[in-house]
Design a protein around this nucleic acid. Structure first.
Lengths: 247, 247
DNA sequence: ACAAGCAAGTGGTCTAGTCCAGTATTCAAG
DNA sequence: CTTGAATACTGGACTAGACCACTTGCTTGT
């Protein structure tokens, strides 16, 4: 066990400890049976104060990797669940993590004034300029979803000059416009495919589809994106991980 | 502002501070504009150490009520989202929070041996005993969902003698069997109503429905419940709050 | 008028302890 | 053999400080 923490690193000690323990758990060095060291033992082993290892352990707990019992100890949780959608990824990232190859067909990318619903989602004046992006999302070259996205034009100028077939929209927003996704509100409902959507997704009119409406926010709670995605019900299932009250 | 913390209370100080600040935010005493006190100021005001108010503030942040910027300060987030499904509530709690009156019609409650899928979900031997519960869930006396629930029989003996039309299943599990829900994995998909479900929900065959499969776990990651809920698409929408990396 | 630099304030990190409330184990008394 | 008390652990809560990186706004010298 390499106990060496880099005290001069940009990464804080508690994050380094979190990472080290994560690795050991994933490598099976710390298994579901009890061999997990106590807070005091870890503090000594890493030569840090107990509060610091505590911070790391609380993080691991809220990530669902361990659980703790007062008076007893800390244990590795034997999760089977994919820690998946809870990480707020976009379509591309999600498909990749499922082992599929994502691609997009851009059907429309125009600059227009925001409709009422969009202005409300993005917290804009009623007639503010937005980009209106319509894409057919494919996985392994099969149509998977039809997506309509609205983005505030003043947050990402010249978005229309970017090749969205290759790059993930979220990558572009992060790297080019320094817009960091922080949290999102999603609502999901079942619906019957309209004629237009059915044609796009190559399914029958009236076939069930999963409609996801998502608004993505920055840390300062500024709305970045409002998206409306219609998935083929036979190819897509949304999965979530819910937790009660982890600190 | 009542700064009085009960130091002899069972509730820890940081939780009391969290609660106090929550109330002030909801009451509008702390608004989205900047008047939020700094950590040091709060520490002095509550007569606690800075680490203690910090714990409260981190909790408020991970709940999405505030956001923080290093070198700048702490701000009230102007959420519009219902802090809702992220709290892992059951059908009853969810309906109540939507202002509807939940009720149930128990269609079946039997003790049987676990099918393969159920045994897998609940981490049981193939032929272990389970309770099989089928309920029609109503909101304001209108059919909303059809739910099939499986529970491991050895975790909640004599479940068949409980009146499930009145009490929430989760309340019973918590109070009677000391089973604390801690986290859950959910998957959602759209489907077309089968004849049986259509009859139960009073909709047409083939109408879109939202099918939610949920496995609920205790803190020690022991599976407690496996549920399969079919919602009327025209009356129900699932909402989620996703966050990236709040500590 | 402007830019550079300084100081004050903020959240983030960390320390080295203390005390408490649970939980196991051990061991002795009944 | 059982019960009960002591003990030695665990995680949870809390303190009173420290230093750092970062932002902002004020001041001062050109």
């Amino acid at each position: 066990m390499a106990d060496i923490l880099r005290r001069d690193s940009a990464m804080p000690l508690h994050a380094q400890i979190t990472e080290a323990l994560q690795l050991q758990i994933k490598a099976g060095e710390l298994k579901a049976g009890e061999n997990f060291p106590s807070e005091r033992e870890l503090a000594e082993r890493f030569s840090v104060s107990r509060m610091t290892v505590r911070q790391a352990l609380l993080r691991l707990r809220s990530d669902g990797l361990i659980y703790r019992e007062r008076g007893v100890g800390t244990f590795v949780a034997n999760r089977k669940i994919d820690v998946h959608t809870r990480n707020l990824s976009g379509f591309s990232e999600e498909m990749i993590s499922l082992g599929l190859t994502p691609s997009s067909r851009v059907l429309q990318l125009t600059r227009e004034t925001a409709a009422e619903r969009v202005a409300q989602d993005l917290d804009l004046e009623p007639d503010a300029a937005v980009f209106h992006l319509e894409r057919l999302r494919l996985a392994d070259d099969e149509p998977m979803a039809f997506e309509t996205t609205y983005l505030s034009a003043h947050l990402c100028p010249q978005l229309d000059s970017v090749d969205l077939t290759v790059n993930s929209l979220y990558e572009i927003l992060t790297e080019k416009y320094n817009l960091q996704m922080h949290h999102a509100a999603e609502s999901l409902e079942a619906a019957a495919a309209t004629r237009f959507v059915a044609a796009q997704l190559d399914i029958k009119i009236g076939a069930p589809v999963l409609v996801v409406h998502r608004v993505v926010y920055s840390e300062a709670n500024q709305p970045i994106e409002s998206a409306h995605t219609t998935y083929r019900a036979d190819r897509y299932r949304a999965t979530f991980y819910l937790s009660k009250n982890a600190l």
